[in-house]
């Protein structure tokens, strides 16, 4: 099983969590798992077997065409994605705190009955 498939599987697990759990916190956990799986997905796209970190230094293997580097772009992208994921989670948690103080419940079924 290659990392791409694993990451998709993890994504499905996250999706399942978002979809089926009634607790707001658990929903957010599902969303976070989805986010994590996407990070894994991107990283595994950029992965090359036996690749080095793409850091060039003076006088090292930079000029050698046979050296394999991992793709640095997905890694850079994922730094951004992680930051975004964290801010979404933070916002969601803030909302949950507010919702709890209004309704005294974290259950989505009960919430949807409230007017």
């Amino acid at each position: 099983m290659n990392p791409v498939n694993i990451s998709l599987l993890v994504c499905m697990i996250g999706l399942y969590g978002v979809m089926s759990k009634n607790n707001l916190i658990k929903k957010i956990m599902g969303l976070t798992i989805m986010n994590g799986s996407i990070v894994l997905f991107f990283i595994s796209i950029g992965y090359r077997k036996g690749g080095l970190a793409p850091i060039l230094e003076k006088g090292t293997t930079g000029g050698n065409p046979t050296t394999i580097f991992v793709d640095p772009l997905p890694q850079a992208l994922m730094l951004t994605a992680i930051v975004i994921g964290i801010s979404v989670t933070a916002l969601a948690l803030a909302l949950i705190v507010k919702i709890y103080s209004k309704y005294k419940t974290l259950d989505i079924q009960q919430l949807s009955k409230e007017r």
Binding site: M19, N22, S112
Partner: peptide, 12 residues
């Protein structure tokens, strides 16, 4: 439905 879970299952 007002139910979020049902809407999410529609998504899937």
């Amino acid at each position: 439905s007002q139910d979020l879970n049902i809407h999410l299952s529609w998504v899937i």
